[in-house]
Design a protein around this nucleic acid. Sequence first.
DNA 1: GTGGTCTAGACCACT
DNA 2: GTGGTCTAGACCACG
Lengths: 130, 130, 130, 130
Amino acid sequence: MLLQIQFESEIPIYQQIKNQIIRGIATGALQQGEDLPSVRQLASDIGINFHTVIKVYNQLKQEGWVIIHRKSGVMINPDLNLTKTPEYMELLDDLMKTTTAEAFMRGLTKEEFINIIEKNYDNYKTQGGK
Amino acid sequence: MLLQIQFESEIPIYQQIKNQIIRGIATGALQQGEDLPSVRQLASDIGINFHTVIKVYNQLKQEGWVIIHRKSGVMINPDLNLTKTPEYMELLDDLMKTTTAEAFMRGLTKEEFINIIEKNYDNYKTQGGK
Amino acid sequence: MLLQIQFESEIPIYQQIKNQIIRGIATGALQQGEDLPSVRQLASDIGINFHTVIKVYNQLKQEGWVIIHRKSGVMINPDLNLTKTPEYMELLDDLMKTTTAEAFMRGLTKEEFINIIEKNYDNYKTQGGK
Amino acid sequence: MLLQIQFESEIPIYQQIKNQIIRGIATGALQQGEDLPSVRQLASDIGINFHTVIKVYNQLKQEGWVIIHRKSGVMINPDLNLTKTPEYMELLDDLMKTTTAEAFMRGLTKEEFINIIEKNYDNYKTQGGK
DNA sequence: GTGGTCTAGACCACT
DNA sequence: GTGGTCTAGACCACG
């Protein structure tokens, strides 16, 4: 999977990488059990410092997305088993309150917004996310 | 409208205020043409630095949500007319890609996600967003 | 609270700091709601780099021990509410299997070992850990 | 005795092996004078590099747990005679300070903790640790 | 002044 | 070669 980083963005680089890896898992571009590049490899591919990649991998590990093998490096957790915890649902709810409010005020109809959701979900369903 | 700020949150205070004002406009809790509290008033109400409030109001003005009168203070723009610019749509698209990906992996079905959208939109429809 | 760091130890510095803060909370040397020194302050007190302290504070935050205020810095979580999760109990069990095995082979009797536990717990009970 | 290695664990593999051998000695699963598998045998059984096993055996030898015969391989020291040296006691004390502090804060009572100790020790007593 | 991000380079433990 | 630790310095966002 090729990562596209926007260096000018206000979103931190490590966050962009995290997002794209999670998207990759959802779409199936990254399969469970698949190896990720080594910290130094990925860093040099993207052209960033390897500490930034370490940070990404550590956060993904702590949230359960990946497993860090002492030897063989990092791989997508083969037993991926994330759940809709109350904390997550609260965050999501808050985010969607803010997001839909602005979308509504900018003239996006409910149908248009739902359409965006469906378009995204269709990328996942076909692949199967577990 | 009463603002609820979480000081421990990772979301910057100025962002929280902005979000809540926009939500307030969408739900109708804040009417177009309505006056907002003065910078110092709001700052002391919430218990924050008034520079933070200035920042919020300036950003809201720049994005077209409010109008700042030199004397009479800040009011919700009576001719609110925000549109779905290409830049906005791109940001929204990117955000929803990331958000739906994680939601999907955490087991939220498309229907559950759409349900969240509808619940929010129903709060807006009745008021009319102009 | 004064932190004692052993620079020659094989235990990473950030781990030593973490341990001592947690001990401090248990003994009451650090009260819930109490402010911790700023990252740069603590770093210069101990004579280490501030990035190391950031790492400590972030881990403590993620585990729920402290809260990081955007402005006022870091404080012991006033609503400290950690529980004996299954994951924790498994880790503890494994650790104690290893620890007691070696202790037993080195001639520590059950009573001596229990005595160590009691001595430590007595430092906590009197203070009350909430 | 069958060794169970967790490759995803944060605990180094060599440490896991060491721990399990020491536990085995304490429980009697490994008898004093008993032969341990050869370096290459154990390495291929577990599926790890044989250097890792060499490291384990060397450390165990240095600490007095095993004896390495040039030809006949490695065996549990028949005259096992480890003592509670001051250095060991200091390490143990420090470890238990940290461990009990977190356990206490997570709601484990003194009795629950002592119970864990007793359960473990009961596995040793019956066998006798010489 | 607070925490956080990114870069860069050295060194270490593990396999 | 793998991840991880520590140092050091620059810069940024926030309040």
